[in-house]
Design a protein around this nucleic acid. Structure first.
Lengths: 108, 108
DNA sequence: CCGAATCCTTTTGGATACTG
DNA sequence: CAGTATCCAAAAGGATTCGG
């Protein structure tokens, strides 16, 4: 979790510090629709390793953006979902989604 | 410049591929207001090295997001500005700016 | 299934020197 | 001023092994 003293002056820099990273953004894109399980995320993110996925999830959990829920079942089941704070990131991802859409269409 | 075949299916991934990177986002934040000179950018981006700044600028220039203008003067002057395409990124940066602002205020 | 730990390779990035 | 080139250290990331 970030402390107040560690926050940059610039608001954009603050946001970048928390989610300005390839995999985090792609994980968040997935979590916007529903909770995802670990291996489900792993399979959907082409090229990510277990190590990097784990680290990214831990980091965002520590920052209070996502929530990790362990279901005590026979074979362990862990779900990752957006926290209330994480939900407020939706407009950013929406803007990125819209831009990418437009950009791709400009090629057709 | 990206070719159509290299674009990911997911629009968010497309955007991430072009600007999903700490320094690029911070450079773009600056260029939203006006053109900037090389050393001016360098001084404003705390901790960036000349090498990384150059690489980031070249990459975004190749992707058509920013424009590099050389003024033929006695002491060389180079300005970086947003292209028309780069201008369309504004909503993304605005969303990040707004989120960072809110986030910081939640600490006070 | 989910993940920590280790080792080792690859990539990134800093420092420095040099140029038009 | 605005870079390029080189070298080297540091960090990121892949592969593998092991465990609850």
């Amino acid at each position: 979790m970030l402390k107040k003293e560690e926050l940059p002056d610039c608001p954009v820099a603050t946001t970048v510090q928390l989610i300005g990273n390839k995999w985090k953004l792609l994980i968040l894109r997935n979590l916007l629709s529903r909770p995802w399980r670990f291996n489900e995320l792993r399979r959907s993110l082409d090229g990510i390793s277990q190590k990097v996925l784990t680290e990214s999830l831990r980091s965002m959990e520590n920052d209070g953006i996502i929530i990790r829920t362990v279901y005590a079942e026979v074979s362990p089941r862990v779900e990752y979902s957006l926290s209330e704070l994480g939900e407020t990131l939706r407009p950013i991802l929406d803007a990125m989604q819209a831009w990418g859409q437009e950009y791709k269409e400009s090629f057709e």
